[in-house]
Structure formats: C-alpha cells, structure tokens
C-alpha cells in the first residue's frame, strides 16, 4: 500500500515547489497580521494563566518590608529569613526596639538585601512569622554599580 503510494508521480506544481512557495507566502502574510506574543517585559509582567486563575501564580520580584498601621516596620528581627535564605543575601542588624514599641523587644536597625545574590526563591517570605517580608511583582532592579544592588531598609520599605 505504502509502496504504491511512493510510486505516484506528483503533479508538476508540487514537484517544482510552486505550490509550496505559494503556501509559504500565504502563511507568512497570515502571521504578519496576527496578534503578537511579545510581552513588553519591564512595563508589563507576563501572566501565563487567565485572570480567574492568576492568584495561583505569583510573580516573584523585588522584596518589600511591610509596615503596620502606625507606619512602623513589621519586622521583629528574628533572623528566620536570614537563616532560611539559601544564597545568604539577607543581612539584618538587630537591636533593641525603641521605647514606643510596646509589642516587641527587637527590631532591625538595618536590613540589607543583596539583590545580585538573591535568587528570588521566596523562602524568606515563607519563613517570616509576621508577614514582614514579601516578594512583590516589581521586576528585578537595574543599576549601574554593585553597591546600588544592595537594598537597605528604607528602600525595601518603599517597594
């Protein structure tokens, strides 16, 4: 059956590739007018799931230090995120909380994240007991120096 089919001589317009050429031209012009797949990355982040299911998929970008309703940083300097971090990019300088902080003993005097070392795995967020550190969907930072890639507490709180 298949042998018989191989012996069939195709018409000249197929053998000479003319039909294929016309089909190719038609295909490319069809694609010319199609909607484009490109996502303008830094402005728009890619959400592969439809909007109804988008909550299941969360982009992991720059970190943010959350603040409570009085504008104080939520972090209690427990160092759990620093311990959980696989790439050792978090550096917390703990200190005794100021007088007004009735609810905790410690707070971070400085909180530095080296964005160059960070692999955006989100384990700091999982480790945090008081939802102080979260990963936002802000894209990875771009700077002109290595020093600029080390984010301090003020910068992280603004994210």
């Amino acid at each position: 059956m298949s042998n018989q089919k191989l012996n069939v001589r195709e018409p000249w317009y197929i053998r000479w590739g003319i039909l294929g050429l016309l089909k190719g031209i038609a295909l490319t012009i069809k694609h010319f007018f199609r909607p484009k797949f490109t996502v303008q990355y830094p402005e728009v982040t890619h959400t592969p799931l439809p909007k109804e299911e988008a909550h299941q998929w969360k982009p992991r970008g720059q970190h943010r230090l959350n603040v409570d309703e009085q504008g104080r940083v939520k972090c209690v300097a427990c160092l759990l995120c620093q311990t959980a971090c696989p790439s050792h990019c978090i550096e917390i300088t703990p200190g005794p909380a100021p007088e007004g902080y009735g609810d905790r003993d410690k707070y971070p005097i400085e909180f530095k994240i080296d964005m160059l070392r960070c692999i955006y795995c989100g384990m700091c967020e999982e480790a945090c007991p008081c939802d102080a550190i979260v990963l936002t969907d802000k894209p990875y930072p771009v700077t002109y120096s290595r020093e600029g890639m080390i984010f301090n507490k003020e910068k992280l709180m603004q994210n």
Partner: peptide, 10 residues
Amino acid sequence: KICAFIQDRI
C-alpha cells in the same frame, strides 16, 4: 519590523 511581524513579534 516585517521580520518581527511575520514571526509574531513586535
């Protein structure tokens, strides 16, 4: 530009 459009890019 035409190359990009044919390949579904911008």
